[in-house]
Design a protein around this nucleic acid. Structure first.
Lengths: 206, 206
DNA sequence: GCATTTTCTGGACGACTGTCAGGAATCGGT
DNA sequence: ACCGATTCCTGACAGTCGTCCAGAAAATGC
């Protein structure tokens, strides 16, 4: 108790445990959603017991916020590669649209979980801070893409970051619901729409 | 039992009761959201007992879908007045933007309930049919506005109904979250954004 | 008035929830 | 090898949920 850390095991171990738990929990959450997921269900789909969840996280609330934060942390870097490597507007456009469609398909459960959480935050004020923060990082993510696209076009974005994000997010959410509903052609439609929309998000070239 | 109707009381009475129950339930649902609202809570905030809810609705699922359907039925006619009375593009533009902001403020609980339900439908397939149908009516609603606006401009819409709705809905949802979070300036921003966006939703005049 | 149907009440049931006290396992220091 | 402290986990608790139901109350037709 006299050591600086105050504990025998390193805090790294503790954090690693939290991350492992979060990763397992994310699978269940993505499958069942915010409310239908119980701590027991999370524990059952993992190697841990349901009590240990409460040992590492104060309550269900903290666990879920941690999970989504953890996921989105890597999520917002998804387009950084395309942004830095693209040398022409079209290249960036295709890369962005493709990756958008790709993540929609491959990580659909994660995305619907995010929208679920954001909807819940409209009712539960305790969720709002985390949601608004994540929303901000997503806004930045989109902004990096659009402003780089504008740069490659030799112009500047036409709208504010907020509005730009709002538009793209609306389309993405719509496509996600369509995809989950098994509606055909949704993916190509999203790709085409984004490609068509992007030029209108930047100022007309001089 | 030999009559054509098969019952003594008219089915109108039955439907009227369902509507009354739905209206009461909507208040609670708008306040607490889909999952945190229990049938007991709904009953408590009404003049009925919690058993009568199950008498008029098979289960919670049917009640909530009925409620949101019932609300959206009147919701989708909100802009019809503006659409028919406006004689200039600007008039329609202002009328639409104003009404959009008005309903966001005055019926915020209803709107967040709708987004809640739509998010839930990404997980529960049983909700999907109702959600997709409502989404379609909202798409039509937006389309009526935009195509009339195009007409007044002497042109035609530039995008598909789906995409047009996706864009507007994304902005609205973003503004709703901002409004509920107490972020200032959200209303004026929405109004200004819609006014600026609308011209880009129709083809440039010849 | 009675008989029948509709409407409503409020309690009971089983399943499930988040939570946590207290025991088991593990570990570092000696 | 042993002990006390720390870490981890199990079982049980109190509460809530949707649902169902037996029967009271009210409405209706004759």
């Amino acid at each position: 108790m006299t050591t600086a850390t105050g504990s025998r095991t390193s805090p790294d171990k503790h954090d690693a445990r939290r991350r492992a738990l979060a990763e397992s929990a994310l699978r269940t959450l993505g499958e069942l959603g915010y409310t239908r997921t119980s701590l027991r269900e999370i524990a059952q789909n993992s190697e841990f017991s349901h009590g240990v969840v409460h040992y590492y996280f104060r309550d269900k609330h903290e666990l879920i916020v941690y999970c989504v934060r953890y996921y989105k942390e890597t999520c917002v870097r998804r387009y950084d590669g395309v942004v830095t490597t693209a040398t022409t507007p079209l290249e960036l456009l295709d890369g962005f649209a493709d990756k958008l469609v790709e993540t929609l398909v491959e990580e659909a459960p994660m995305h619907r979980l995010w929208y679920d959480l954001r909807s819940q935050s409209m009712f539960e004020e305790s969720l709002r801070e985390a949601v608004l923060h994540i929303d901000g990082t997503l806004e930045d993510m989109v902004w990096r893409v659009v402003s780089r696209y504008a740069e490659l076009c030799g112009t500047v974005p036409a709208l504010t970051p907020r509005v730009t994000y709002g538009l793209v997010d609306g389309l993405f959410q719509q496509a996600l619901l369509g995809f989950l509903s098994g509606r055909g052609g949704v993916l190509d439609e999203l790709r085409a729409t984004v490609r068509g929309l992007m030029p209108t998000l930047v100022r007309a070239e001089a």
